[in-house]
């Protein structure tokens, strides 16, 4: 007889999420009863999830960087941005059929996003359960604004991302501007950002993205276990430079559109 796989939410969390903290009064059962395949075993742990967040974080940082550099083509005018978009659809053609590479990359990105978000959500739940709030004041000594707001900056950036896709990729109104046309990337972009409120939204969202990846780009070294003294001092520098580059590159575009430099 075939067993149907049905998991309650809590069971799902015991496999992929975090189990509840137990009482420390009795010695912990040390042995792990059944071992699942090691990637699953690994992902079940909080350290594993942080590692996955670090790896997916690298993938997402790579995407954000490439996306920002690609977008800078808007400054070349002359339909260069549209050709770039076209080029992406034909990546590795004729080795692979048109748009296949793009879809592979998109799939990878979606998986990275989902894992990143699932890990973050499940760790947030664990931390909520593990933590008891202080009744008096807290005086955090070193935690940065970025590290303390990761959850909120992450959620807001994710919501913005959906808006951004609806606006410029799917052309869904009211997110997209009037007259959205498939393939007319530059025109769509200029039309969208010419709306004052949208431009402000893009600026704010990119600042939040910058704050998010500033902590992420530093934190991933820690989560992945790279802290050798020989390059440790570069981690902070790298995170600052990387997030600054992304913010400056991305924020420049709405400003350029708004001030009429582009479009």
């Amino acid at each position: 007889m075939k067993k149907r796989l049905r998991l309650t939410v809590s069971e799902a969390f015991t496999i992929f999420g975090q189990s509840m903290p137990t009482s420390p009064a009795t010695p912990a059962p040390v042995s792990v009863s059944r071992r699942r395949p090691w990637p699953v075993e690994f992902y079940r742990s909080a350290v594993g999830k942080k590692w996955v967040m670090g790896i997916t974080g690298i993938a997402l940082l790579g995407f954000v960087l490439a996306h920002m550099i690609g977008n800078l083509k808007v400054y070349l005018g002359d339909g260069q941005l549209d050709s770039y978009a076209h080029f992406l659809r034909e990546l590795l053609y004729p080795l692979l059929p048109k748009t296949v590479t793009l879809w592979l990359m998109r799939t990878g990105l979606v998986i990275a996003f989902l894992l990143h978000i699932h890990a973050a959500a499940s760790l947030t739940l664990l931390n909520r359960r593990a933590n008891t709030a202080y009744r008096g004041p807290r005086d955090l000594a070193v935690a940065s604004y970025a590290s303390r707001t990761m959850r909120w900056s992450g959620v807001i950036v994710a919501v913005f991302l959906l808006w951004h896709l609806a606006d410029l990729t799917w052309g869904v109104t009211p997110m997209a501007a009037e007259g959205w046309t498939p393939g007319a990337v530059e025109a769509n972009l200029v039309a969208s950002l010419s709306r004052g409120g949208v431009a402000v939204l893009y600026v704010v969202a990119n600042l939040l993205l910058g704050i998010h990846i500033y902590h992420g780009a530093w934190s991933l070294f820690q989560s992945l276990g790279f802290a050798h003294p020989s390059y440790k001092r570069w981690r902070r520098w790298f995170a600052q430079a990387f997030s600054a580059a992304i913010v400056i590159g991305n924020v420049s575009i709405p400003i350029a559109v708004w001030t009429g430099m582009v479009g």
Partner: peptide, 17 residues
């Protein structure tokens, strides 16, 4: 040690506190 730790405590978000 890590698996036992995670039965009781939260996860690291690299605040440095």
């Amino acid at each position: 040690m890590v698996d036992t730790m995670e039965q009781f405590f939260g996860s690291c978000t690299n605040h440095g506190e």
